[in-house]
Amino acid sequence: MKTLIATSLLALLAASPSLANKAFVSNERGNTITVVDTDTWEVIQEFDGGNRPRGITLSPDGSKLYVCASDDNLVRVFDTETYRELESLPSGPDPELFVIDPTGRHLYIANEDDNLVTVTDTETRTVLAEVPVGVEPEGMAISPDAKWVVNTSETTNMAHFISTEDYKIYHNVLVDQRPRYAQYTDDGTRLFVSAEIGGTVSVMDIAPDGTPTLVEKISFEVPGVLPEWLQPVGIKITSDGSRIFVALGPANRVAVIDGETLEVLDYIIVGQRVWQLDFTPDEAFLLTTNGNSNDITIIDVAAEKAIKSVQVGQQPWGVVVTPN
C-alpha cells in the first residue's frame, strides 16, 4: 500500500512539472516559519524557525531558505523541500535583514546592535567583512549588477552605498527618520528608501557608475487615517518598473505608486501592521505580512486589489516566494 501511494505521488509529481510555488513567512513572535502554497493559498507546513525569526530570503535556485534568527544571533539555513535545518551561518549579533547576491555566494546582513553590515560567505560559512555603517542598520538592497549594496541606518537616517568590490562606503545620502527598507528597480536606475517615522519614501536616481542623486520624496495621505500612522516599511517594484508597492505599517494599507510619475494612485486595505512584501515569480500576486492580525494578504497585482487573507503564525514579519 505504501509503495502504491509513493508511486502514485511520484507519478503525480512527474505529471505536473510546473510545481506550485511556496511562500515562506517568518513569524517573529511564534518562532516559526509558515509555508503557504501559492496556487491553493493553503498553509502546507509550519516549522521551527529559531528564536525571533525576522528577515527571510532564498538562495537564487530556491533550494535553501535563509532566516535571520535575531535572538540566536545567527542565520539559520533550511532545505525548502524537507524544511530540515541544514546549517547555520555566522551573522554578527541581532541580524534583522539581509540580501543575497545573484550568485548566492554572499549574504549581506544588517546587524542592528553593532552598527555593522556583515558579509558572510554562504559556502565556507565564514565572515568575509564587517563594514561600519550608521546607527541601527536595517534595510538592505543590492544593485542588479551586484556592484553595490545599500544599507539604511535607522537612527543615523542615511542610505549607505557599499561597494561589493572592496566593502567600502562611497556614498551616504540623508533620508527621513528611521529608514527601514531599500529597493532598486530591476534596471538599476532608481533606488527607493522608506522612512518609517518620517512617513516618506525617498527616490534616488542612480547613475551608471552607481552614484545616487536624491530626486523626490513621496508622501502619503489617507482620509480618516492619522498622518502619524502612515509608516512606510516594505517596498516592492514590478520588474517593468511601472508600479511600486509600499507597505504602510499601522495604516493597514499598501500604497500603489505610479513608477513614472511617482504619484500615489491608490491604497489597498490589507491586514494590521503591514511590514514586508514579496511577489510571486510571475508578479501576478503580491503577499503582505500583517504582524498584528497574524495573517498575510494576497493582492492581485493587475487588479490592484486584495483578494484573500491567509492566517499564518504569530506576528508574521517577513515573506519570500520560491522562484520558478
Binding site: 551616504n172 545620502v173 542623486t213 536624491l214 520624496k217 508622501s219
Partner: peptide, 17 residues
C-alpha cells in the same frame, strides 16, 4: 514643506558627496 526641503537636502547631500 517637504517638497521644498527635498531639493535643499539634495543640495546638502551633493555637497557632502
Amino acid at each position: 514643506v517637504r517638497q521644498i526641503i527635498a531639493p535643499l537636502l539634495a543640495v546638502l547631500v551633493c555637497v557632502g558627496l
